[in-house]
Amino acid sequence: YYKILGVDKNASEDEIKKAYRKRALMHHPDRHSGASAEVQKEEEKKFKEVGEAFTILSDPKKKTRYD
């Protein structure tokens, strides 16, 4: 999950949140509406992965379990 968000394992809550926003905007489906179906599908997959990574890393209990 750290790799997906592009943050270090010791990243602060704020750094995780900023990285999530950056990656979410980058891969958001609306940004790729004019792209081919294949690209849209890949970006949607990445967008979901970013969301999942943020869900785990932003919750202290889940993050501890993950680490």
Rank of each mutant, 00 (worst) to 15 (best):
66 Y>M: 05
46 K>N: 04
42 E>C: 08
40 Q>F: 01
37 A>K: 11
29 P>M: 04
24 A>R: 13
15 E>H: 01
37 A>Q: 13
55 T>H: 14
25 L>D: 15
7 V>D: 15
11 A>V: 02
13 E>F: 13
60 P>V: 07
9 K>F: 05
11 A>S: 10
30 D>F: 05
52 E>L: 04
9 K>R: 13
22 K>L: 12
20 Y>D: 12
31 R>N: 12
43 E>S: 10
40 Q>C: 06
8 D>K: 05
8 D>R: 02
34 G>T: 15
11 A>G: 02
63 K>L: 04
46 K>D: 04
16 I>M: 07
12 S>T: 14
4 I>M: 07
24 A>Q: 10
29 P>I: 00
35 A>E: 15
15 E>P: 00
54 F>A: 10
63 K>A: 05
62 K>W: 04
18 K>Q: 12
48 K>S: 10
51 G>H: 15
66 Y>S: 11
4 I>G: 08
29 P>K: 07
14 D>G: 04
31 R>K: 10
53 A>Q: 03
29 P>F: 02
56 I>K: 09
67 D>V: 05
23 R>H: 14
66 Y>A: 14
42 E>S: 12
50 V>T: 05
13 E>D: 12
8 D>T: 10
3 K>T: 13
37 A>G: 10
25 L>I: 12
24 A>N: 04
21 R>Y: 14
11 A>Q: 02
6 G>A: 03
27 H>W: 04
45 K>I: 11
7 V>G: 06
46 K>V: 02
5 L>S: 09
8 D>N: 12
34 G>H: 14
45 K>C: 03
46 K>G: 02
26 M>T: 08
60 P>C: 05
22 K>G: 08
5 L>E: 11
28 H>K: 06
23 R>E: 09
63 K>Y: 02
58 S>P: 01
19 A>P: 02
37 A>H: 13
52 E>A: 07
2 Y>H: 03
47 F>V: 02
54 F>P: 14
52 E>D: 10
40 Q>K: 08
18 K>I: 12
66 Y>R: 08
48 K>D: 07
48 K>T: 10
19 A>L: 01
37 A>M: 09
52 E>P: 02
47 F>M: 13
58 S>A: 08
5 L>K: 06
28 H>P: 08
30 D>M: 05
27 H>R: 04
10 N>Q: 04
43 E>Q: 15
22 K>F: 08
8 D>A: 11
27 H>Y: 05
55 T>G: 12
7 V>P: 04
24 A>L: 12
22 K>R: 13
43 E>G: 01
8 D>G: 08
4 I>H: 08
32 H>W: 14
46 K>T: 01
59 D>R: 00
10 N>C: 09
66 Y>P: 15
14 D>N: 07
44 E>R: 11
20 Y>S: 07
63 K>S: 08
44 E>H: 08
58 S>H: 04
3 K>R: 10
59 D>I: 00
61 K>Y: 11
51 G>V: 15
44 E>C: 08
28 H>M: 07
12 S>H: 02
38 E>N: 05
35 A>Y: 04
49 E>K: 06
17 K>G: 05
48 K>I: 05
60 P>I: 10
66 Y>E: 13
43 E>P: 02
30 D>Q: 08
40 Q>G: 08
44 E>Y: 05
11 A>Y: 00
2 Y>F: 09
35 A>P: 02
6 G>E: 08
19 A>N: 05
54 F>T: 09
26 M>N: 03
31 R>D: 06
8 D>S: 12
17 K>R: 14
61 K>T: 14
22 K>W: 04
39 V>Q: 11
53 A>S: 05
52 E>F: 00
7 V>L: 12
52 E>S: 03
57 L>Y: 01
40 Q>D: 03
10 N>M: 06
54 F>I: 06
61 K>C: 12
28 H>W: 03
24 A>I: 11
34 G>L: 10
42 E>L: 09
25 L>W: 14
21 R>E: 15
53 A>C: 00
38 E>M: 03
31 R>Q: 10
12 S>F: 01
51 G>K: 15
13 E>G: 10
23 R>W: 07
37 A>I: 11
21 R>D: 14
63 K>P: 03
61 K>Q: 15
59 D>H: 00
41 K>H: 03
50 V>P: 05
27 H>C: 07
52 E>W: 00
21 R>C: 11
25 L>A: 11
6 G>D: 08
14 D>K: 08
30 D>P: 04
59 D>W: 00
64 T>C: 11
43 E>Y: 03
3 K>Q: 14
58 S>G: 11
4 I>K: 03
40 Q>S: 07
56 I>R: 08
5 L>F: 05
27 H>N: 04
64 T>K: 14
5 L>I: 01
11 A>T: 04
53 A>G: 07
8 D>L: 00
64 T>V: 13
35 A>G: 06
58 S>E: 08
39 V>G: 04
47 F>L: 14
48 K>Y: 02
58 S>N: 12
30 D>G: 07
64 T>H: 14
43 E>A: 10
39 V>L: 08
45 K>A: 10
57 L>Q: 06
46 K>Q: 07
34 G>N: 14
36 S>F: 02
51 G>D: 11
26 M>W: 03
28 H>Q: 01
3 K>D: 15
23 R>C: 12
10 N>E: 10
64 T>Q: 15
27 H>A: 01
21 R>G: 12
64 T>W: 13
24 A>K: 08
56 I>E: 12
2 Y>E: 06
67 D>M: 02
21 R>T: 14
67 D>Q: 06
37 A>Y: 11
50 V>W: 00
7 V>M: 03
27 H>S: 08
51 G>Q: 15
42 E>T: 11
66 Y>D: 12
59 D>T: 02
24 A>P: 02
43 E>C: 02
16 I>L: 06
57 L>P: 05
